[in-house]
Amino acid sequence: MSAPAPAGYSLAVLLDPKRVATIRGTPLEHEMSDLFGGAIKALILRVSPEQSQKLLAAFTRSRTDSRGFLEELPVSFKHALFEEIVRERSTGPKVIDKVLGRIDALKTEAAREEDHLPAPEMPNVA
């Protein structure tokens, strides 16, 4: 599962309502994908084989799934990636490179994440 394939992978940046509001009115708005019938909005990035290898090596729990997506990347990485996407107004390869430039700091944050992640509010279920 963790061995990168030569073709590279996809990476989904999930968009909650706050993130959707952030990119509203920018060119990124037109790049939003609907997943599961529109229940989830996401930006889908292509990740080159070299970039994929670096990410899989940096974050040992990350893996690729049967859909060909890079998954289980640290939350801090996903936050940093969304920041770069908004800053660059792009989902091109450059944003992944920008985040890879911060990889050491992100690895430190990811290690902290392994101990604790704040739980969301308890959902109300009828």
Partner: peptide
């Protein structure tokens, strides 16, 4: 894996 990523992001 996708669902675990989604959950981890809260």
């Amino acid at each position: 894996s996708f669902i675990r990523s989604l959950l981890a992001e809260g």
